[in-house]
Computed example of a mutant assay.
Amino acid sequence: MTLSLEEVSVFVAGRRLVRELSLTVGPDEVVGLLGPNGSGKTTALRSVYRALRPVGGAVRLDGEDLNAMPARAAARRVAALTQEGHADLDFTVAETVALGRAPHLRGNQALSSAEHELCRRAMARMDVAHLAGRGVLSLSGGERQRVLVARALVQEPRVLILDEPTNHLDLHHQLRLLAMLRGAGLSVLVSLHDLNLAAAACDRLAVLAAGRLVACGPPHEVLTPSLLREVFGVEASVVPHPLTGVPQVLYDLTAMKGTPA
């Protein structure tokens, strides 16, 4: 499924936070959304999973306007892991993951045996199967994050939206999650702060600054010293990874002395 943002503009509290953003994510493609704090990444993602409605432009799935779809139909196609993702009720991990099936069920319809197996596989995939009987409020931040990713996978979406999904995760689970995204067979739009992880995990990178798209392309084309200086305000060298050739950013900390925090 192809996700297309077509000249999307979003206003929040009277301020335009996203400006005429055009971006496409193709089938089985992982696109990383990068940018400094306040660049519009989260706002752009929220317009895709319908938490915000664009005031201009459109978000389309295979050419169909996402905001014109019934909520249940949209939820069958798009799943999201948000920065605000949390649990207020102490459901068990198994119950929380099973909530991902809600768009596919009617009323109090029980999960089928195939759906229970789907939940078990998703929990195993995210390394939380051993926590199935635990209440989610008793989990660490990283454990809870993995549970929420499992819930999104159980939704069986065609498009997956993730806003800073590696937050709270240890290095092992960061790499495990990003490797999973590459093999998920989904259209994935993910915001990340770690540029090296983004370069390793994403087919293309899209960089926002002040709500505008300023660069988009393969990691080796986007991650340049001049872009890092202009967009992120850092001095850095970019070198190929010795094994994969993927660009790696090497930061010059001495250049940051005396700059405001």
Rank of each mutant, 00 (worst) to 15 (best):
P36L: 05
D170R: 10
R158S: 15
L137F: 09
A215I: 08
A152T: 10
S9R: 03
R19F: 05
Q155S: 11
L227S: 12
R19Q: 11
G107F: 14
L3M: 01
P260L: 09
H86A: 14
A206L: 06
G57I: 11
T82L: 12
M1Q: 02
A255K: 10
G38W: 04
L139W: 03
V159K: 00
A129T: 08
R53M: 12
S237D: 14
E115R: 03
P27A: 15
R158C: 04
D127E: 14
P218C: 11
L105P: 09
Q83V: 01
V214H: 07
M126C: 15
L253I: 08
S187C: 10
V249E: 02
V238C: 01
L33Y: 02
G14R: 10
A215T: 04
G141P: 05
R76W: 00
E117T: 15
G245I: 01
E230N: 03
V8T: 01
V149A: 07
V12W: 08
T166L: 09
M1P: 09
E7K: 15
I161W: 07
G85T: 15
P242C: 03
P165Y: 14
L131A: 09
R101Y: 13
H86M: 09
H130W: 07
L175S: 06
P225I: 00
G26H: 02
V78A: 05
L169W: 10
A209I: 02
G142Y: 08
R120F: 10
L3G: 01
E235D: 13
G233C: 05
G211I: 13
P70A: 11
A210L: 14
E64D: 09
L186D: 02
F11P: 00
V234H: 02
T2P: 04
T43E: 10
V25H: 03
R19V: 11
V249A: 10
L34Y: 04
A94Q: 14
R106P: 00
S187A: 15
L195Q: 07
R176K: 14
L213S: 01
T259Q: 15
A110T: 11
V207H: 04
E117Q: 11
V10P: 01
S4R: 13
